[in-house]
Write a protein that binds this DNA or RNA. Structure first.
Length: 539
DNA sequence: TTAAGGTTGCAGTG
DNA sequence: CACTGCAACCTTAA
């Protein structure tokens, strides 16, 4: 792997020159080193965001409204974030220049037309940006443009951490509070934009999407202002911040979510993770006792950095094949089961209501995510984690390449976590938090009149009850796609075999090995079937 | 070779 | 709610 050096400016751009800040993530004013450096000593500052059709153009063939890559909720969140960024830039005497098209085409044209001498953009570890930024660096170097690309999305620089291999000993981040204090009172004005086709931040409709009713959209509004407001609100409850313990917290709580819901703001960089870190530290300093990493709130930010670091240092992190840290497991290729899970019709109300919350809100509590991820993969359906990852990546407003892939490997027992016998029950897990099933009633209104005795297992309700609840199982709401006890038992068996083979072959399993493993398991099941046949013959 | 530790299991008990 | 028994994985350190 490569460790692209963070380009520290060696020469100051001559004063009186033009700078361009290219926003991708990092959609904020506060704690934005790229923006601050771009503003320093420039006559004109061009703040640019490029709308890449690949990410933003409507794709009618997708399974949910949105583009090829993103569901409508996340696209809307991004547009809101851009509108807020524009507003905040205007307060500083600047504005956001939005352009549409292939990012490098647009960028190169702007650099040339505006005689840019200094280009600033936040360093990004994702493969997509790694290759994009390579091209940009080459172009800029050839054109004699100074580049400044600081690490500011994460607490630590992933490349540093990998080189020094001291993830656990990372200690305190190297920046101090003073480096974060922004004294941006005013930005250089935007220069002449010439013939470049600048547009305003578009609306959903202007991008070619149908407007959807307010109550079907995510309740979380995008943007730095909203992110900072949310942060402030969370930090006000000092007791709660200090005693935060990740494994605890109620996944069925939706009127007032049991976590901060700052993840989407961190994902787009509307909120600085480093600023968040300092706010938590500040609260803890003033509290007698507090929880500690890995379970504390601070610990959550460290996990985020950990996943960014592993993702950056692991080739093919987003797939099973050729991924050194990923166990090779003969997942099923069953599109029907996948679709049932994706479309919230597994017949398990706890699972389906979580998938409905994903559709409508683009956000669920982390334990709810665990339940549906476990169910799709190692717990029940044995569908490939990459398939579930794709659905999450599309629909989550906080979907983050490194974190999403890491968690899918975690939950499918492919990496990080391996206790495959610990399976979340699609029936009892939710029940212990929400015995009345209020969460299910809200997100699956078809079940709203089902008595609480049956709401987690409606297929067990007597027909008279189903009629009274106006919900016939198999007609109004599906029968369960699998028998959880049987399915989870089979999952455990095949995982046992897969782990054995991974151990024996030291992880070097071929496609053939995986196929054999699948077949072997099918054969193992067959004797019991023939036994059953024999028994019936004897009978 | 063994022991301990691991952010988030379940079912049963008091 | 806190505890236990259950079954039992991997990784790391000794």
């Amino acid at each position: 792997m490569r460790f692209p050096a963070i380009s520290h400016p060696t020469t100051m751009a001559p004063s009186g020159s033009n700078s361009l800040i290219w926003f991708r993530k990092g959609l904020r004013i506060h704690d934005n080193p790229a923006l601050e450096y771009a503003a320093k000593g420039s006559t004109a500052l061009y703040p640019v965001f490029v709308i890449d059709p690949r990410y933003m153009e409507p794709d009618p063939s997708a399974f949910s409204p949105g583009s090829n890559r993103a569901g409508l909720n996340r696209i809307r969140f991004l547009l809101e974030s851009l509108a807020d960024l524009d507003l905040n830039l205007k307060k500083l005497g600047s504005r956001l220049l939005v352009l549409k098209g292939e990012p490098t085409d647009i960028l190169f044209r702007c650099l040339s037309e505006w005689s840019i001498k200094r280009l600033c953009f936040e360093f990004d570890t994702e493969p997509y940006y790694q290759s994009l930024d390579d091209k940009v660096r080459k172009y800029a170097t050839a054109a004699g443009i100074e580049i400044y690309s600081p690490v500011s999305h994460t607490l630590f620089n992933p490349a540093d951490i990998i080189e020094k291999s001291f993830v656990k000993l990372a200690g305190e981040p190297s920046w101090t509070s003073s480096t974060l204090v922004s004294d941006l009172n005013r930005l250089p004005s935007v220069g002449n934009v010439g013939n470049c086709p600048i547009i305003e931040v578009p609306s959903i409709k202007e991008l070619g999407y149908e407007d959807t009713p307010e109550d079907e959209n995510t309740p979380f509004k995008g943007g730095e202002s909203e992110g900072l407001r949310r942060l402030k609100a969370s930090m006000e409850n000092k007791e709660w911040v200090a005693n935060f313990e990740k494994p605890k917290g109620d996944p069925s709580s939706f009127i007032k979510p049991a976590t901060t819901v700052l993840s989407p703001y961190l994902k787009f960089g509307c909120l600085s993770s480093r600023y968040f870190y300092q706010c938590i530290q500040e609260v803890q300093r003033n509290c007698k006792k507090h929880t500690s990493p890995p379970v504390s709130l601070l610990g959550q930010l460290l996990w985020r950095d950990f996943f960014y670091t592993v993702a950056f240092g692991t080739p093919n992190f987003d797939q099973m094949k050729d991924n050194k840290i990923c166990k090779q497991i003969p997942w099923k290729n069953d599109d029907e089961l996948l679709a049932a899970w994706r479309d919230a019709r597994t017949g398990f109300p706890w699972i389906d209501s979580i998938m409905m919350q994903l559709r409508k809100w683009g956000w669920m509590h982390h334990l709810a995510r665990h339940c549906v991820a476990c169910f799709l993969t190692r717990g029940d359906l044995f569908v490939h984690w990459e398939k579930g990852r794709d659905v999450f990546e599309r629909l989550l407003i906080d979907s983050d390449w490194a974190i999403n892939n890491a968690n899918w490997m975690w939950l499918s027992c492919s990496s990080f976590f391996y206790q495959y016998n610990r399976i979340y029950s699609p029936i009892s897990f939710g029940k212990k938090y929400d015995p009345n099933g209020n969460y299910i009633r809200h997100f699956l209104p078809i079940l709203k009149d089902m008595p609480k005795e049956y709401i987690y297992e409606p297929w067990t309700a007597p027909m008279s009850i189903q009629v009274k609840a106006k919900c016939i199982i198999g007609k109004d709401y599906p029968k369960p796609v699998v028998d959880h006890n049987l399915a989870s038992k089979e999952c455990k068996e095949i995982l046992y075999e897969a782990y054995e083979l991974n151990k024996r072959l030291k992880g070097n399993l071929s496609g053939e090995d995986l196929k054999n493993l699948r077949n072997k398991h099918e054969e193992d099941k067959r004797p019991s079937k023939s036994k059953r046949l024999k028994q019936t013959t004897i009978d």
